[in-house]
Design a binder for these strands. Structure first.
Length: 485
DNA sequence: TTGAATGAAAA
DNA sequence: TTTTCATTCAA
């Protein structure tokens, strides 16, 4: 069955929670425990990955019900227009967001007197109920995942150039933002929606309820890398959110707070007591600059405006405007460090960090004869140097959720510290691993002084190798297998 | 939308 | 002092 067909399994009319849950267990669990995998109870359905809309808080047999939100869903039908509870009678569509399957929201929540405090925190779930994570649902998408490894590994120079352009230091992406970014384009295509709010809701739902631990761990580690590189580029960055603005309770009422508090402060009327301030992404450390402070002397973000010539060059204006570019490097790069990235194409690139910033040495090589595939992401390892040991060390056997049930010790961080994207992970024969291991070592040995890097490649290599499931890499013992028939 | 970070308020 | 809560902001 193709991926985006209308649900024909009768779930729309599922008579009761219990019954549905039972059927879910019988049909999908097959006696296996999914203890650590946060499926909702709606089951995997027929492979559409979608469930019914519910606008009236009618459960339709689902435990987790999405309440659609008219403000965020365009192109919905008129109120009360849905005549059938069964999606079976609606026209097939390749978009799970089809209006034929949606109805406008009706808020039937009972009003509880006196309970108003959390009004703003009303949970707005996606209009689509996913029944499988996006990593599964969009597995066969022709739209590649965005390469968030490349993003997390942007060199210091790139990051500073971005700051120069935007005139602000952006926060590093957290694991969910990385995930969301990776899947945004796919999700748009899959939903046939080009709406940030919808993408956010769908990816949020997939992330929070559906994605297996391995996917989350992967983006967790990318987030760690992203955070570390951000820290490297901006050692004194400190998140400094704008002071919270009081909420407008009722736009028709007289504001409880001065108008100026809600927006830009003009010089004449704005914020005389300085209570509110517009958003800023970073601020100078409150402590007086130290000699070792890369922002030393008279430099400040606000004043410098980053109006230097070419941030990527080593020209004098750049270093004058960005003094830390020159001064901080020795502080944080006492020893160059390097890491290797396997991109899922059976190729490795070795990155080297140092005072001169990050250089990418494209030490690509074939591995296992694995053909090139869409997208990237595969394995990633950091090699020793500096203070980043937590990225460099093998963490030993990573607990694997019962969802994965790997037969051959499938840890997503293997004994070499390889960070393996679950999409490219499989469990198979040892001889394949030998190829990975030697190639990996070759990559590391490609013109570099490994130093402590040898530590990262020693030790036992488990029977893991990279496989692109789009090329048929899902093997019989893959936990995804049963859902991809 | 989730999650990190922040700061104020409450315990 | 510690915990809880609301808020900002990353795309």
């Amino acid at each position: 069955m193709s991926s985006n067909q209308v649900n024909q399994s009768g779930q729309y009319g599922a008579p009761s929670d219990n019954q549905h849950e039972l059927s879910h267990i019988e049909h999908y669990n097959e006696g296996q425990a999914y203890d650590n995998f946060a499926f909702d109870n709606s089951g995997w359905g027929d492979g559409t990955g979608i469930g019914p809309y519910d606008n009236t808080n009618t459960n339709y047999g689902y435990h987790e019900v999405a309440v659609s939100t008219p403000a965020s869903r365009p192109n919905t039908g008129s109120v009360g227009s849905r005549k059938t509870r069964s999606g079976r009678t609606t026209k097939p569509t390749d978009s799970p967001m089809s209006s034929s399957r949606s109805t406008p929201a009706v808020n039937n929540s009972p009003h509880i007197a006196g309970v108003r405090k959390n009004r703003a925190k009303k949970v707005q779930e996606a209009d689509v109920i996913l029944q499988a994570p996006l990593s599964v649902l969009t597995k066969d998408s022709e739209t590649p995942l965005r390469d968030m490894e490349a993003w997390a590994n942007r060199p210091v120079e790139t990051r500073r150039a971005e700051v120069a352009k935007a005139n602000k230091i952006a926060r590093p992406m957290n694991r969910f933002m990385l995930y969301r970014s990776a899947y945004a384009e796919r999700t748009k295509k899959w939903c046939d929606q080009n709406n940030h709010q919808i993408v956010s809701k769908v990816t949020g739902q997939s992330w929070k309820k559906l994605e297996p631990k391995e996917i989350k761990d992967y983006y967790d580690r990318l987030a760690t890398i992203e955070r570390e590189n951000h820290q490297r580029a901006f050692p004194d960055y400190k998140f400094s959110p704008a002071k919270a603005m009081p909420k407008k309770k009722n736009p028709k009422r007289i504001l409880d707070y001065p108008e100026s508090a809600y927006g830009h402060f003009s010089e004449s009327e704005g914020d005389p007591d300085g209570e509110y301030r517009p958003a800023r992404q970073s601020r100078q450390p409150k402590q007086p600059p130290r000699m070792t402070n890369p922002y030393a002397d008279n430099y400040s973000y606000e004043d410098a405006k980053y109006q230097f010539a070419d941030p990527g060059s080593t020209s004098a204006p750049y270093h004058q405007a960005m003094p830390y570019a020159a001064s901080q490097a020795p502080m944080y790069h006492t020893h160059p460090y390097q890491y290797a990235v396997a991109n899922g194409h059976g190729q490795y690139a070795v990155y080297q960090h140092g005072p001169g910033g990050q250089q990418v040495h494209d030490n690509r090589m074939a591995m296992n004869g694995t053909p090139a595939s869409i997208g990237s992401s595969g394995a990633l390892v950091s090699l020793p140097g500096g203070k980043h040991h937590e990225l460099l060390q093998s963490r030993g056997p990573t607990p694997v959720s019962s969802y994965q049930q790997p037969q051959h010790g499938g840890n997503f961080m293997d004994h070499n510290g390889l960070l393996m994207h679950p999409d490219h992970t499989n469990y198979s024969l040892g001889h394949e691993l030998q190829g990975l291991d030697s190639n990996f070592q070759d990559a590391l040995n490609g013109g570099y002084d490994l130093g402590g890097g040898q530590e990262a490649v020693q030790g036992h290599v488990d029977e893991e190798f990279l496989v692109d499931p789009q090329l048929g890499g899902i093997l019989d013992n893959s936990p995804y297998q049963k859902f991809l028939e």
